[in-house]
């Protein structure tokens, strides 16, 4: 219902930020995420960052899934 893609913030100027995904660049608004900093990854929807992505949560999810599927395999 709402397509949003993870992009990396390359530079910030006031409420506008330069972002990148796979080398594709565009100027977007960070009005909805004033806490966003250069180097952060944000969820981009229709030209606006709607959330700052949580890198620890992402890593934790992947570790949790890896452990869970390994546990599954060892039949416990």
């Amino acid at each position: 219902m709402c397509l949003a893609v993870p992009v990396k913030i390359i530079s910030i100027e006031g409420e506008q930020a330069e972002v990148d995904i796979g080398g594709v660049g565009r100027k977007v608004s960070i009005t909805l995420t004033p806490e966003a900093r250069v180097g952060d990854y944000v969820l981009l929807h229709t030209g606006y960052a709607i959330n700052v992505l949580n890198e620890e949560e992402a890593q934790e999810t992947l570790n949790l899934l890896e452990r869970m599927v390994e546990a599954g395999e060892s039949g416990d």
């Binding site: 397509l3 893609v5 992009v7 990148d20 995904i21 796979g22 080398g23 594709v24 565009r26 981009l44």
Partner: peptide, 12 residues
């Protein structure tokens, strides 16, 4: 190319 993938992700 990563750039084409990135642009397609961006525009759906």
């Amino acid at each position: 190319h990563d750039g084409v993938r990135g642009a397609c992700e961006l525009l759906g």
